[in-house]
């Protein structure tokens, strides 16, 4: 039990993610989380605006259930399987984050500067969260997949398109962290 309450090391977590994909494939499905965003758009009536959203959403019902489960899993893990939420990242990252004004680094799971309740009264931070989410949603659909669909499923199937997408993920991430962060958080 002691082991479960601690953060899980990569050599436990990575294989368990591969297992998740394997179970979904053996259930006759595929491992891809961002598809749910499209399904939710369709459910909200986006099929009236674009034929991209005209598909049989019921064929994706199983994936919505996976997403619901992912939320429940987060609830269980955070409330019952975690002794201390603080994420102990490398000292260099901690120091750099404190320079950028993220003083919650090293003491919490998510930066309180972005995810504390006070954010609901802070339009600047809300804008950052919406813009970031927009880029994730737009980029995932444009690229035809996200971390699960490309970095895990696609690379596992040795797909060149997935390699291009993952290199793109990294190019974008590196620009954000190394070039844009110092401009956004001064």
């Amino acid at each position: 039990m002691e082991f479960i309450m601690q953060p899980w090391p990569w050599y436990v977590s990575g294989p368990l993610i591969a297992l998740t994909m394997a179970i979904l494939v053996l259930l006759g499905k595929r491992f891809g989380m961002s598809s749910n965003l499209r399904t939710i758009c369709t459910l909200a009536g986006a099929d009236k605006a674009s034929d991209f959203f005209r598909f049989d959403w019921k064929s994706q019902q199983w994936n919505l259930l996976v997403a619901l489960g992912v939320g429940i899993g987060g609830f269980i893990a955070a409330n019952y399987l975690t002794a201390n939420e603080a994420v102990l990242i490398h000292a260099n990252s901690l120091e750099e984050l404190r320079t950028l004004g993220f003083h919650s680094a090293g003491t919490s799971y998510m930066p309180s500067e972005f995810f504390a309740k006070e954010v609901f009264n802070d339009p600047y931070t809300i804008a950052i969260l919406v813009i970031g989410g927009f880029l994730v949603g737009f980029g995932a659909r444009y690229a035809g997949g996200c971390t699960s669909g490309h970095a895990i499923s696609g690379l596992s199937n040795l797909q060149l398109p997935s390699l291009i997408a993952v290199l793109g993920f990294f190019a974008g991430g590196l620009v954000m962290v190394h070039v844009l962060f110092p401009l956004i958080f001064r």
């Binding site: 996200c146 699960s148 793109g168 620009v175």
Partner: peptide
């Protein structure tokens, strides 16, 4: 698409799962 996704992933630290 990958670059857009990466920019957002690094900014908000969360992908669709």
């Amino acid at each position: 698409g990958g670059v857009f996704f990466g920019l957002g992933w690094a900014l908000v630290g969360a992908c669709p799962g």
